[in-house]
Amino acid sequence: MANIRELKVRIKSVGNIRQITRAMEMVATTKLRRFQDRAVASGPYSEEIEKLVQSLAASVLSGDEVPPLFQERKGLVTGILLVTSDRGLCGAYNANIFSLLRRVLREQEGRDLRFYVIGKKGSSFVKKLGLHLEAYLDDPSLELIGYRDAARISRFLTEEFTSGKVDEMRVVYTKFLSMAKYQPTDFRLLPLSAEKTVSREEGGFQSQPLLVPSEQTIFERLVPKYLETRLFNLLMESLTSEYASRMVSMKSATDAAGEMQADLRKEFNRARQERITTELLDIVGGAEAIS
């Protein structure tokens, strides 16, 4: 039976695939840990900046003059920072972002959209839909982005906003909720909204602190840092989601390959047994015919 040889080949190739997906799963796990460490390392800094912003925002923003990064504009140009992965084989990670993006496109109908893209998948998607790709940010690739690179991107996007090239800047990325849950998210980076920046309760100081040189100056310095930390955090969240998604999908691929291998082996054994039985019958039949 030729079937037997065929089965043997298939068992072997499924086994090879399983080995590969398992290796990929392990690579994803290791990288995931590294990205989490990187995100954790900058945590204290983000917290300090956020605390400072909150202790100043209330009084600065209640003043007569709204800082430029908080000013709402009437213009019709929207910039969208799209964060995707460079490589595939990460489950529905990119597909989920794109389906959210389609919804955003419907919502933003009538506005002039400019895309700022991170990740190869995103750039080919934007090109495929014939959208306006303003900048493809691939240096360095998302996997290698450190705080300083995120800060540079943040300065670039802020500049696009302050120069008037775009009237608002949105970000479409993947929010990391847990190892099994990541949510494509669309939010407005600029202009900053005053309500979201000011927290309700603010304590800690026993008395009003001295502000040197002045409240405004400190705040103006602080806001760009605040944007940097937010951008870095959301890039790290995207990256973590990507690798968590990749790890899970590689794990299920490994499991599926294992199951398939077991099924094939069962089939193979049955076929082999069948062949032996037929052969035996043949021999017995032959022997009987001779005697």
């Binding site: 202790s55 100081f205 008395s207 602190p209 001295l210 502000l211 040197v212 040189p213 400190i218 310095r221």
Partner: peptide, 12 residues
């Protein structure tokens, strides 16, 4: 210069 007991302050 900051010594213990300095008043609360935020600066650049």
């Amino acid at each position: 210069g900051i010594l213990p007991g300095h008043a609360s302050m935020i600066t650049t």
